[in-house]
Design a protein around this nucleic acid. Structure first.
Lengths: 174, 174
DNA sequence: AAGTAAATAGACAGACTTGTCTGTTCATTT
DNA sequence: AAATGAACAGACAAGTCTGTCTATTTACTT
């Protein structure tokens, strides 16, 4: 088995994603991760601290999955279209639970500025991904916006309908 | 002063919007609405029941504000562009707190199906709004998607930058 | 083999949550 | 003037939450 720290982050990832951040308690996390409470607070100084660690882990995981998924395609256009297939792939894999980062964005208050900046950094990296692929400023923003709403709308309607429409739109744009 | 029911919904609107749904307790709502707890449970059978009532009230308010805002313009194109100005207007008015419906979407579990369907109904009405204005299926979905991400991205970055970019994009589309 | 660091279990504090309940006061209507 | 319904205050149950604490056991290193 993994180290306590890894078990905590893995369990928290699952639970935050399934139930939301505020609806998931420390007690459930440590119980399902088979970790003592004192061990938890040895590794994380607070729940918000765990949240930041979770988001960083999620950032790494999600991006490496995306890059692996799209890099099979050779042309820019194909890679961009593949990114929208990636949403479908993740929706099916994770049950239409949307974006971890945007979900937590809805749950935090003004005081949790550290968490907000981690979320912003993640989305800035996503914007950069499209910018690097496409070069053009306005076009890459356009695709980024369609990408973002594709994730949210599939979470809302538990359906890939609008992801596929987005892909069709993007196909006509580039 | 208003009736207790109205005071409860008004207060809940404010607090849900500012702090989120799960972070706002019944006790705070009744205290700030100057209503007794027994009176609260005479009007709403649960917190989720209040949530539905709040979303319905918000739906009515938000749409009437949108229609008032855009109907000053005469052509379809101008009305669509005005809809994006409406986001900027609401962001400034409400402090970049995003969409009440999507915020609550991130907080609810699978068991809260009633709430989910109220959120879906709201967004379906928004889709219909664009469809009626534009006729074309794919184009109206396109604008709807840009509209949705404009709201979310401005909440995320506490800025109207991407709303304005969206407006520029939409201007070139129609 | 002794010592150190990290894990364990789980009690506890203090504050919070939703929802129920009793009993009182007020305003309107008959 | 009596009666009815709706509001009031607030105690209470039963459970949740985060975070701290003590005390014990395991595992690794010197």
């Amino acid at each position: 088995m993994d180290t306590p720290r890894e078990r905590i982050i893995d369990t928290a990832s699952l639970l935050f994603h399934q139930q939301g951040y505020n609806s998931t308690g420390i007690n459930q996390i440590i119980s399902e991760a088979n970790v003592a409470k004192a061990s938890f607070y040895q590794h994380f100084k607070s729940k918000d601290d765990l949240c930041v660690a979770f988001l960083n882990a999620r950032h790494g995981y999600w991006f490496s999955e995306l890059i692996t998924y799209v890099s099979k395609s050779k042309s820019t256009k194909k890679r961009i279209l593949k990114a929208f297939d990636f949403i479908v792939y993740m929706n099916e894999k994770e049950g239409f639970r949307g974006c971890s980062f945007l979900n937590i964005l809805s749950e935090i208050s003004k005081e949790q500025g550290t968490i907000l900046s981690v979320i912003q950094a993640h989305k800035n990296d996503l914007r950069k991904f499209f910018e690097k692929e496409l070069g053009e400023e306005l076009l890459s923003a356009h695709i980024y916006l369609l990408f973002e709403s594709s994730i949210i709308e599939s979470q809302l309607f538990k359906s890939n309908e609008l992801v596929k429409k987005s892909k069709k739109i993007v196909n006509s744009l580039i």
